[in-house]
Every structure is written in C-alpha cells, then in structure tokens.
Computed example of a mutant assay.
Amino acid sequence: MGGSTPVAQNRASAGHKLGQLVGDWFEKYVAWPLLSDVAKSLDLYPDSRFNMRSCRPGGKVMWPDLEGNTVDYDVVFELGGTDDKIGEIVAAFETFWRRGIRHSKDKARDDSGKLGAIRDTYPTARMLCIYAAGDFSKPAKDLVKSRGLELFYIPKRDILEVWEENGVTIDYPDKADETSKAELADLAAKALRQDTDLLQRIADSLWDRLGATEKTRMTDVVRARLSALPRNYTIDVVDFVHLEFASRIAVQEFIDRGEFLQQVGDTHREYRYTVEFGDGDVFERSGLSWIELRQLHKNLGRLVKHVERLSQRALK
C-alpha cells in the first residue's frame, strides 16, 4: 500500500511537469533570444539567468526594492552594464506560459506587483513588461494594462501547434486523467532526449509563424518607453520649500552649486524628488538624503543622455 504513493505522486504532477517543460522552453528559446536582441539593438546590456556574469554569480537576476526586499526578474536591461559591472536598470520583464485560464488574474497581479516595485524604486526603470504565452484571460490582460505595464502575448493555439508540427503533443483535454497526462509528459521527455536540437526547431517554427514583426514591435515599444523623457522636475525640502525645474540641466546646476544646501544649513533634511515624464508616468521618492537625491538625478541623467544619443543615431 505504501509503495504505491510515489507512483500516484508522479502521475499527479505530470501536468505540472509538462507545463514546466513548455514554460522553460518559452523563456529560454523564445523570450530570452528576442529580448536579448532588442536590448543590444538599443545599446543596453541584457541580463537573465541564461547569462553568466562575474558580478552576479548567484544565477538569479536580483534587484532590491524600496522595502528592502530583493526580487528576482526573468530579464533585465541595464544601461552601462557589462559582464563585470552592474549597470542602471532601465527595463524589466516577466515571462511565463499558462496552459489553462484559471488563476491567470492572480498571476497577472503577482507579476505586475513585482514589476511595480521596481518602478517605484528606480527612476530609470521605464519599460516594465509581461511577455506571456498560453491562456491569459481578458480580466488578467486588463489588470496588467491598468497598472501601466506593457503586455506582449502569444496565444495558446500558436504554441500548441508549433510543438505538434515538430512531433510533440503537449495538449490534453481539461478532464484528462493523470495517467494520460503522464504518458504525454513521458513521450515529450523521450523526444527531447533523442533530439537535442528539437527545442530550438520548435522555437524556429514559432518565429516562422510570428514573422519578423514581433521583434520590430518589441523594439519599437521599448524605444518609445525610453524616449518619453522627463518634462518636469520637482524637489521638495520636506516641511520647508517646493522647487520646480523645467529641465534636467537646471536641476543639475542647482545640485552642483549646493547653494541651497548651505542656505538651509542642515545636511539632515529630507528631500522628495518628483519627475513627470512625457508619457504621463510620474516617479516620486521621498525621505531622501542630499547624497541620495544627487545620485538619483545622476542616474536618470545617464538614461536621458543615452536616449538622446539613440535619437541622434536614428536621424543619421
């Protein structure tokens, strides 16, 4: 009686294993190559668990948020990043495959929350995106968009069909028993063991179906997000004064002179830094020290200069 438990557990997890197989394939062979190419086309450094770096030996792509939590992301674009140095985060992506539509709104809520945390922490994190494949309900899509995130979506039908075209069945009726699911999982695993190039060919089939427009569309969206530059800056010295600036350079001149800091005569005052972007986004951080204020503005300035260089290059 006790000896039958492992078999039952293996069968019960067969659907999950099959979903994990497809999800890992989607992240490694579809999302990561696409996003890596997009980042490089914009002179940004792409990072994921598939990219080994001496400055990030742990494997996961981890970034701290305002609450002191360290959150891992599937793909991050960095400005000024290298294999040896962490740069400024300018984009973050979550990718996933969902075979069924159940709980897709919960998934959307979780992932959009992770991405929102990075937006609230870094003024340079301008592009936040969920790249999903499979069944994703309309309420889930609406939730993602309502939180100001980008959503790229490949329908379940396309994924199932390209796997089928390459001789691997990954779909099953919703009421299929665990034995049937286990048989599909075993057949898929066997096919992959016998053909080490199969996963890449399935991805190639998907790209043949999607066409080159998918990469172009993604690149255009990222570029547009980054190109929505700051149009107004505000610095508040908490409980003291409110200052507005029309340009990044005006803020930098104010910070460089340090005259206001000397005037208030108190390096322990707290500052609030607010930036309004051209696409309507607003970044705000409170409780900043003078040094933190200077660093935030310096980091954002690097991104502004980078985008201006990209624009000039496009005009040539």
Rank of each mutant, 00 (worst) to 15 (best):
K105V: 02
S48I: 01
G80W: 00
L21T: 11
M52V: 08
L34V: 14
F96V: 11
P57T: 09
I86L: 07
G23A: 03
G87V: 00
M52G: 14
A92D: 00
K28T: 06
T82K: 00
G100M: 08
D43L: 03
S54C: 05
R49E: 05
S36V: 01
V75Y: 08
D110Q: 14
K40R: 15
G23Q: 06
D65T: 10
T70C: 07
H103S: 14
D83Y: 00
L115Y: 05
G15T: 01
A92P: 09
H103A: 00
V61Y: 04
Q20H: 04
R56Q: 12
D24H: 15
A14F: 12
E27Q: 03
S104F: 03
I89V: 12
C55E: 15
D74I: 08
S41G: 05
A14W: 11
M62F: 07
L44W: 13
W25S: 04
S48M: 01
Y122P: 15
E88P: 06
L42N: 06
W25D: 12
M62Y: 14
T95N: 13
L18Q: 06
K28G: 02
S104A: 02
K85F: 04
G116Y: 06
V22N: 03
S36A: 12
A91S: 15
L18S: 05
K114D: 15
